[in-house]
């Protein structure tokens, strides 16, 4: 019989005998019940340890990356950047998987065999991070370092949007990459990515472009952002012609 099933049956009997409210009131008068039980368990355990000659084994608390960092005294350069990376590491924002740690270490010239747990990874990362130049640390602090499935959805959307802009006769797109709608498209892509509502390649939605951000888009095509819009624009024009 399950322990809580037994407890339920007992409580049924008690409640049937004394009533629900009386039982609750009595229970609330027993605030130290848990502590007393704990004390009994502890004393029993202590007695068993003394009799058997075993020693109490306490499991050491797992140190976070920030804990490890604060215990290290030899960080003299770029301490702030390393601290920021340690904080991101604890939040699983920096090197989120053990594979990413291995990749980072390999890319830093130290291949560690047998690293199987992410939590022990920072111990290997720290000596490498300490040696890195400050500008590289700054770049790491702001970049992603995840080797898992690539986020190709936003990229695919940006490529498609660039193609549409070019088909609409935006000649500047082909000669000046930085001053164009592409900029806005990429920013749009970033916003989409930040909102985490980007789509995967398999379930890609159309990604309407905010035409107000386009400096060089011909006015006549302002409302045409995808094939669906093109069709609806054509339908609208047809119905307008019919009405006229």
């Amino acid at each position: 019989m399950k322990r809580n099933a037994f407890l339920t049956r007992l409580l049924h009997t008690i409640v049937a005998e004394y009533g629900h409210e009386e039982v609750l009131r009595t229970l609330s008068d027993l605030p130290h019940a848990d502590e007393r039980r704990e004390r009994i368990t502890q004393s029993k355990r202590q007695a068993w340890l003394e009799q058997s000659g075993h020693r109490e084994v306490t499991k050491p608390k797992r140190l976070t990356a920030v804990d490890q960092l604060t215990k290290t005294s030899d960080i003299t350069v770029s301490g702030e950047e390393i601290f920021a990376l340690a904080t991101r590491f604890d939040r699983k924002e920096f090197l989120p998987t053990v594979g990413d740690i291995r990749e980072f270490l390999a890319m830093s010239g130290s291949i560690v065999e047998g690293l199987t747990s992410r939590s022990e990874g920072f111990r290997y990362l720290l000596p490498v991070l300490v040696k890195l130049p400050p500008e590289r640390l700054k770049r790491l602090a702001t970049s992603n370092s995840y080797s898992g499935p690539s986020q190709l959805g936003p990229l695919a959307d940006a490529i498609r949007s660039a193609g549409e802009a070019m088909r609409r006769g935006d000649q500047k797109l082909t000669t000046d990459a930085d001053a164009l709608p592409l900029k806005d498209m990429l920013e749009d892509t970033d916003r989409a990515s930040t909102r985490k509502n980007h789509t995967t390649l398999g379930q890609r939605k159309t990604h309407p472009i905010d035409d107000k951000n386009f400096n060089n888009v011909p006015d006549s095509d302002e409302s045409v952002t995808n094939a669906g819009d093109l069709k609806s624009t054509a339908n609208r024009k047809t119905s307008e012609a019919e009405q006229a």
Partner: peptide, 29 residues
């Protein structure tokens, strides 16, 4: 872009990345 940097040897793996508008840019030149 620096992909990997070995602080001990000073050697690195670097990349000159491409962009999807690369060929369009060249065609415009």
């Amino acid at each position: 872009e620096t992909i990997g940097f070995n602080p001990t040897s000073g050697k690195s793996l670097q990349l000159t990345p491409s962009r999807f508008d690369f060929s369009d840019n060249l065609l415009g030149a």
